[in-house]
Design a protein around this nucleic acid. Structure first.
Length: 570
RNA sequence: UGGGGCGUCGCCAAGUGGUAAGGCACCGGAUUUUGGUUCCGGCAUUCGUAGGUUCGAAUCCUACCGCCCCAACCA
């Protein structure tokens, strides 16, 4: 092995660690090296008919990422060719989401609708070249005549209209002389093609509908196939990256580029779209979830939308890291949630301020602690980041601890509180449980404990150890709060594969806890910054919060090896 | 029975003829005032299957098997 190849391999490995390496970057790099491309231009082309989701994030990171890595640019271009489905609300939301994710298109904001003029002229160009014709065949009939996967299509009786007649009809289509569906403009390619997209695809259809941007200027609109590649060419996009289901469209993409006087020669490449376990990334289904009220909206924290993830408290950097880790390939896959969750925890662990919050309160009375006395104890804000400093928390005779942290008859491996057992209250004292007070129903409603004054701060002078450290909050100044816990939206890994996807919805995807008590240090701001409720997980303030009535979303729980242990024990 | 793709560890994914990267998950073990974090170690004699070519194959050839996409005037 020569040193040259070794160095190359090392360089490639280094690159792989950085931005990730994949077949698309290899193609772009080869094009640049060979001089086929002077400036790399990509584009992210959403249709404004819904909100962006994490699958789009993969594409955004890919397109903007490649442009950045190769010193090129990435356009944000709305694929707004179907005014019956597209809305301004979605346009605005998409722009906001792309920015939130951390990408900047600079001045390169475009719309396919910006090109309706040239697109129309190019349609005329095809007609004049005898490569497109106006077809009056009704929709259903045209469908029949297209043939099947194994049988060729049959020609429409309008297929050989004269150029003059086609020109006239197409002009009148544009002039609004015909109702929706009356006629279409079709490319004249090959009705016997094995590739259905080449069986005289529709280029223009009549749609008497107001467009969010062009208003009533047009009543005929280009189809995706006619608009996309030409838009790429107009913008001098060099690498038009899309998902696998468009692979069959590439011959048509190329045919149009080759038969039109477009200003540049873009190339289309395809990669496998993201599938995430226990959720769904189909805009059709997401739209229905919203429309039918299965979720509170596009930004419901259970939704895989960027708006939902944002409200849930997922940092954009974690999404970018996720996209980097899953890579880009051409094989369909179903990515486990754990792969998404890891970078979320990893990032939040570094930045989230620690606070104490009791989600399911159980009252504790320290019997040997003087009535009416309180004291301030110092607590660390983030052990991962000394610069985050410390804060004071109030301790008193009456406290709340987590219900789950007490068991009357604990199994061997349960380290927490039980009668006679001593534990540490974080940053405070060792306490020992003397008695569990029950109500008439036999439920534990209060713990009577004693504390060891010598353990102030959390260490015993005699060196004795405890097995557990519990979070807690002083009854006197704890603030009531609502906390929302989330599970996956669906109860099965691949809901899209089910006959009835809505039957797969997880009935426990949302749990609302209304009697939580949080540390006062959490109140006073309306910061959306992530916090860690110690021993529980990462949370963020929800917009539903009102003054004095905080509402927190659990972004994600901490890793919980005790829960795992419990599950093992059955 | 047509066309286009894809099959490497439980999940992603490198690898492009020279003897299977990495991440997640999982399993140990150390540290720990979060059963968190961090750390250390383990985890594919094998690349859908079967043949073939070759000194040598996940990488080349052949056949087979499996999965995905395409018959919207959606994108």
């Amino acid at each position: 092995m020569s040193t040259g190849t070794a160095a190359e391999a090392a360089a490639r490995e280094a690159a792989a660690k950085e931005g990730g390496r994949d077949f698309l970057r290899d193609i772009v790099e080869a094009d640049v090296k060979a001089g086929r491309v002077k400036e790399v231009v990509t584009r992210f082309p959403p249709e404004p008919n819904g909100y962006l989701h994490i699958g789009h994030a993969k594409s955004i990171c890919l397109n903007f990422g490649i442009a950045e890595e190769f010193g090129g640019r990435c356009h944000l271009r709305f694929d707004d060719t179907n005014p019956t489905k597209e809305e301004q609300e979605f346009i605005d939301a998409i722009e906001a989401d792309v920015r939130w994710l951390g990408f900047d298109w600079g001045k390169h904001l475009y719309h396919a609708s910006d090109y309706f003029g040239p697109l129309y002229e190019w349609a005329v160009h095809l007609i004049k070249a005898g490569k497109a014709y106006v077809d009056d065949t009704p929709l259903e009939e045209m469908r029949q005549m297209r043939g099947t996967l194994t049988e060729p299509g049959r020609p429409s009786k309008f297929r050989n209209r004269s150029v003059e007649e086609n020109l006239d009809l197409f002009r009148r289509m544009r002039a609004g002389e015909f109702p929706n569906g009356a006629r279409v403009l079709r490319a004249k390619i090959d009705l016997a093609a094995g590739n259905m997209n080449l069986r005289d695809p529709v280029l223009y259809r009549i749609l008497h509908a107001a467009h969010p941007r062009t208003g009533d200027k047009w009543c005929i609109y280009p189809t995706y196939d006619f608009a996309h590649g030409q838009s790429d060419a107009i913008e001098h996009v060099t690498h038009s990256i899309c998902t696998l289901e468009f692979e069959d469209h590439r011959p048509l993409y190329d045919w149009l580029i080759e038969n039109l006087p477009v200003p540049s020669r873009p190339r289309q490449y395809e990669f496998a779209r993201l599938n995430l376990a226990y959720t769904v990334l189909s805009k059709r289904v997401l739209t229905k979830l919203v429309a039918e009220g299965h979720v509170s909206g596009w930004d419901d924290p259970r939704m895989p939308t960027l708006a939902g993830l944002r409200r849930r408290g997922v940092p954009p950097a974690a999404i970018r890291e996720f996209a980097r880790r899953i890579g880009v390939a051409r094989a369909n896959s179903l990515v486990e949630m754990a792969i998404f969750e890891h970078p979320v925890r990893e990032l939040l662990n570094k930045i989230a301020l620690r606070r104490m919050a009791v989600l399911r309160p159980l009252k504790v009375v320290i019997e040997n602690y003087p009535e009416g006395r309180t004291e301030q104890l110092e607590a660390v804000n983030n052990p991962e980041d000394p610069s985050a400093g410390t804060r004071r928390v109030r301790f008193g005779r009456e406290l709340f601890v987590e219900r789950d942290d007490f068991m009357e008859n604990p199994p061997k491996k349960f380290f927490r509180l039980s009668p006679g057992k001593e534990v540490r209250l974080r940053y405070a004292y060792f306490i020992k449980c003397r008695e569990a007070v029950k109500n008439a129903a036999g439920e534990v409603v209060e713990l009577r404990c004693t504390y060891d004054p010598a353990t102030r701060g959390g260490n015993a002078p005699d060196g004795r150890k405890v097995q557990a450290t519990l979070h807690w909050v002083a009854a006197a100044d704890a603030v009531p709060a609502e906390v929302r816990l989330y599970e996956t939206l669906f109860k099965t890994p691949d809901p899209a594969a089910a006959d009835d996807i809505f039957a797969e919805l997880n009935p426990n995807s949302l749990e609302v806890l209304t009697d939580c008590r949080i540390e006062p240090a959490l109140v006073g701001g309306n910061s959306r910054e992530a916090v860690q409720f110690e021993r529980q997980g990462y949370f963020c303030l929800d917009p539903d919060s009102a003054p004095g009535k905080p509402v927190y979303n659990r972004t994600i729980g901490l890793r919980d090896t005790w829960a795992k242990e419990k599950a093992k024990g059955g």
